[in-house]
Nucleic acid binder design. Structure first.
Lengths: 194, 194
DNA sequence: CCTACAATGTGTACAGCGTTCACATTAAAC
DNA sequence: GTTTAATGTGAACGCTGTACACATTGTAGG
C-alpha cells in the first residue's frame, strides 16, 4: 500500500483518479468527465493518469465497474435473499432508484457497448446477471430461470431508462416505487399462476 | 424550396447537415458525429452549420427526432393496427430490431435527458408513447391502458438496451425475435386471463 | 433596374480536449 | 550504493465546439 511520502509521486494516483472521476460525474454529468479535469482534481499533471489508465475509455470503464459493484450492494441492501414476488419487487424498486439517484453513473454503466472492453467490466455485469437469475430461481423454482430472469431484468432496466429520460412520471419517489412494484408483480403473477 | 444556384450558398444546408450527421452516425458511431465533420461532408465551412443549428446538441436533437419518426414508421410497417397479443408482439420485435439495426441512432435517441431540449424532440417521443398506448388499448380494451402500455414499453425498451449492450444472446435475429415475442406474450397473458 | 436589407456562408481565433513523446524524479531491487 | 523500473512533468500535435467580424448572395421596395 503506497504512501504519499514526497510531493512528486502521488502515492495512489489510480484510486485518486477513480475518485475524482466519480465526483466529476456527479457534479457535471458525463460531459464533465475529462481526463484533464480528473488530473487537475487529483492535483497532478494532465498526462499522469496515463500511467494507470490506457486512455479515457479505460478510466470510464473502471468507473462503470465500480458502479456495477455499488449497484450489486444496493440491491443486496434492499433485500438480502428475496424469495417472494413482493421481496423481488423490492429489489426491482432498488434498481430503478439507483438509476434515478445516480443518473450519470447509470448512463455510464450502460452507455457504450462493453463487449470488447475491460474484463473487469464484463465480469461485473455477469455478476449482476447471475445475481438476478439467482433471485428469480429462488422466487420461482419451477419456471425457466433464464427466460424469466431476462424478462424481469429487461422490464426493470427499461423502467429505469424511461424514467431517466423523463418519459414516465417520476415526480415523487413513491409514484416510481408503486409503478415498478405493480409492473413486476404483474409480470410474475403469470408464472405463479401456471 | 431553395435551390443550389451558386456555389456560395448551399441551397439547403439544413437538410444536408442532417443527412451528413446521419451518415456519420452510421459509419463512425456517435463519437464521429462532430459538427466539423458534418460541415466537411456537406462541403461547407466549419461554422456554416451554426446558421441552422444553435449548437451541436441541437443537431443531435434533430437527428434524434428524425430517428423517432423512423421508429414510428418502422413499427407501423410491422403491423398497421395490431389488435391481438401476437400482432402486438410483432411490433415489439420491430422495436428491438430497429435498435439492433441502428444502434448508434437508437443510443442518440435515448442518450441524454431530453426534457429541456427541442420541442420537436419531446413531441416525437410523445407520439411514440401515445402510439404504444393506442395499440395496447386496442389489444386489451378492458385493462388500464396507461399502466399496461408503460409496462410493455419498458419491457421492450429494456430488451432492446440489454441486447444493445451485449447482455443477452443476440447471435441470430431469430433468437432475438423469439425471446422478445415470448417475453411480451408472457407479460400479456396475465391481463388476458383476468 | 437599382438599391437596401436580411439571410447565409467564410475565415480567423480561442480555449479545451485526448494523446504522444522525451525527460525528470523517485522507489525498489540487487 | 548503483542500477533499474515505476511514476509524474512539460511541451507539442491535431482535433473539437464556438464566437466574432466579414464576405457573398437572394429578395423586397422603390
Amino acid at each position: 500500500m503506497p504512501q504519499a511520502s514526497s510531493s512528486y509521486h502521488h502515492g495512489d494516483l489510480r484510486a485518486a483518479c477513480l475518485r475524482a472521476a466519480r465526483d466529476l460525474l456527479e457534479e457535471d454529468g458525463s460531459a464533465g468527465l475529462s481526463l484533464r479535469a480528473v488530473a487537475r482534481r487529483a492535483g497532478v499533471s494532465a498526462t499522469a493518469p496515463y500511467r494507470h489508465y490506457a486512455d479515457r475509455d479505460a478510466l470510464v470503464s473502471a468507473v462503470a465497474a465500480e458502479g456495477y459493484r455499488e449497484l450489486a450492494e444496493h440491491l443486496a441492501a434492499a433485500h438480502p435473499s428475496p424469495k417472494t414476488p413482493d421481496e423481488l419487487a423490492s429489489v426491482a424498486v432498488a434498481y430503478v432508484r439507483f438509476a434515478l439517484d445516480r443518473p450519470a453513473m447509470f448512463r455510464v454503466m450502460f452507455a457504450e457497448p462493453c463487449d470488447p472492453n475491460s474484463e473487469e467490466r464484463v465480469a461485473a455485469t455477469a455478476a449482476i446477471s447471475g445475481y438476478v437469475r439467482g433471485i428469480v430461481h429462488a422466487t420461482f423454482p419451477g419456471s425457466d430461470p433464464d427466460a424469466l430472469s431476462t424478462t424481469v431484468w429487461a422490464l426493470v432496466h427499461g423502467l429505469a431508462f424511461l424514467h431517466l429520460d423523463g418519459k414516465l412520471d417520476s415526480s415523487t419517489p413513491e409514484a416510481v416505487d408503486a409503478q415498478v412494484r405493480a409492473a413486476v408483480q404483474a409480470l410474475f403473477s403469470v408464472s405463479a399462476a401456471r
